[in-house]
């Protein structure tokens, strides 16, 4: 996983994004056990408290759950993961469209551009 951080944004939010991506791309597969907080914090070179906060956020989204004394696991709910995946796709598309509009492309031109690229 890429653990480069941008110091200008809260670190825990960036951790949430990275971990969510790892779940969506099945780098952490459904139902799998996550590394311990301390191991994960070391890997990411962040403070264990910050990581704990990020995990709390994922837990409140039901993407992970805690099994008492046994550690943290990725959800088994594939629908939920798909929903987060499609939300992320929407965000990517939205930002792509806004970038294209910014350089003066019309909706038709954007669609044309996507088709051409897709056919290659």
């Amino acid at each position: 996983m890429d653990f480069n951080f941008d110091n200008e944004r809260p670190i825990y939010i960036q951790l949430v994004e990275k971990l969510r991506l790892a779940i969506i791309t099945a780098k952490y597969p459904l139902g799998s056990r996550l590394p311990s907080v301390r191991d994960l914090a070391l890997k990411a070179k962040v403070n264990p408290n910050t990581l704990q906060k990020a995990l709390g956020e994922l837990e409140s989204d039901w993407l992970i759950y805690t099994e008492r004394t046994n550690g943290k696991y990725v959800t088994n709910d594939s629908k939920l993961v798909k929903k987060f995946r499609s939300d992320m796709a929407k965000d990517i598309v939205r930002s792509f469209i806004s970038d294209m509009k910014n350089i003066g492309y019309s909706n038709e031109e954007i669609i044309l551009c996507l088709k051409e690229k897709g056919e290659k």
Partner: peptide, 30 residues
């Protein structure tokens, strides 16, 4: 990136005390 909290000290006084992430959020800066 490893800090929970920051204390800014200047001329012998604590001039700012905050959690690191909430300061980043508030100031939109590192």
């Amino acid at each position: 990136r490893i800090l929970d909290d920051v204390l800014f000290i200047d001329k012998g006084k604590i001039v700012l005390s905050s959690s690191a992430d909430s300061l980043r959020k508030k100031e939109k800066a590192s």
